[in-house]
Design a protein around this nucleic acid. Structure first.
Lengths: 226, 226
DNA sequence: CTCATGTCGATACACTGTATTTCTGCAATA
DNA sequence: TATTGCAGAAATACAGTGTATCGACATGAG
């Protein structure tokens, strides 16, 4: 009888807590999108009955809130940014990167107020970088405006990305990618400006698109802040 | 025996079509939000078995797409706008108004590419108003940037609005409205800039907030277009 | 009149979030 | 030590979901 014969102790399951639950849900969402996250599947992944979760979470929405806040830990920048513009830009870019790592984030962003500790920390860091540059109301407006753009742009980008993935992989020509329907629509002649735009426009990659729009907005903010 | 005694003919149910289905779904959503829309309830409202719907719609997502496009009919401005700035502003404001009439729109906006005829018409009108002001790529960037801001701002506004409605009606003080949790968080001293902002900031109403941010962005766009 | 076709309804399935009830193992008391 | 009480976990239950499948039926053709 060697050690190898001795059966493992029954590996008492690690005690359950919010962190483990959120981690499991996050993994599920990363693998299969938001609607791969069901309380039953989360529980199964933790070798636990579904009802156990309700000791730590009171509703599925709450779980989503926790997931969103968890990701905000990745968004919080590592080091203090140089100036206000850098701070706003970094926040936007890190949010976008997080959403590309966790596409489901795009579905949740802006859907409910994000008041978790990590989200608050991100806001705090941003506000701190703008502190004193103008009256508080202006500063708030700046932060919120950039935030709104960020959310909207990310949502659109992810939506576009998914559509591309669904319709033949990465035919990156807009018209053909969205199938014959759009082509037919444009061919009707009812949308001349749109048709011209689709035909003559160069398709720039998503990142520069995001960055360009962001820079415009930062320019606008700069004009108001000083 | 008068006409009043004569029983109504059995009012053969109006023939089913996409329009009627979408209208029913829209009504349901207006009354009870997006998750009051189930295929069974939509069907019930039309006095029809649930499976009938699949003759006109192939999935629930498709129904949502149709709903979104339907609302875009309300967004399409009645008359041709004066100049490009007016065009962009009007599109943003009409979108916001539509989202306030149909709050569920906030949940769907930007979630998937909107390619329905009405949505295309809105885009067409916008592009037409900007035609020739700059090269097409710049024009596109302008439209998309404003669009991204609009989506993000609307989402945040509706999220805020719902939260306010959930936590004691319309205590319009941010801190108290979000319950003791946020107060406690701010009291920890870990978020001094945020605390100051909450404390010293005047709370402006949502509409001017939206308008201000929009104007900033339009200024930025103006600088790039000319 | 019979038969085929195609539409409509009912039924069925796998799954969801969550409430409620049942069980189980440990603590403290008698 | 034996018994009881109780907390925490598990199982079951319920009302609903989106959608596939199958059986009936009505209508048109031969």
């Amino acid at each position: 009888m060697t050690v190898w014969d001795r059966p493992e102790p029954p590996t008492r399951p690690a005690p359950l807590d919010r962190e483990r639950i959120v981690a499991a849900a996050l993994a599920l969402a990363d693998e299969g999108g938001l609607d791969a996250v069901s309380l039953r599947k989360v529980a199964a992944r933790l070798d636990v009955g579904p009802m156990r979760l309700y000791g730590y979470i009171s509703t599925k929405e709450e779980l989503f809130d926790l997931m969103v806040d968890e990701v905000h830990a990745e968004i919080l920048p590592a080091e203090r940014p140089g100036d206000w513009r850098e701070a706003l830009r970094v926040r936007a870019h890190r949010t976008r990167q997080a959403a590309l790592r966790h596409e489901w984030l795009a579905d949740l962003l802006g859907g409910r107020p994000t008041l978790g500790p990590n989200a608050l920390a991100v806001t705090e860091a941003t506000l701190a970088a703008l502190d004193g540059l103008a009256d508080i109301d202006t500063v708030m407006r700046a932060v919120e405006t950039v935030g709104a753009y960020t959310i909207g742009a990310i949502r659109s980008e992810v939506a576009h990305l998914r559509a591309e993935r669904a319709t033949g992989l990465s035919e990156h020509d807009w018209q053909r990618a969205h199938g014959p329907y759009v082509s037919r629509m444009l061919a009707t002649g009812r949308f001349p400006a749109l048709a011209k735009a689709v035909h003559d426009g160069t398709d720039v990659d998503a990142e520069t698109s995001f960055t360009t729009g962001l820079d415009w907005i930062l320019d606008a903010v700069a004009a108001k802040l000083m």
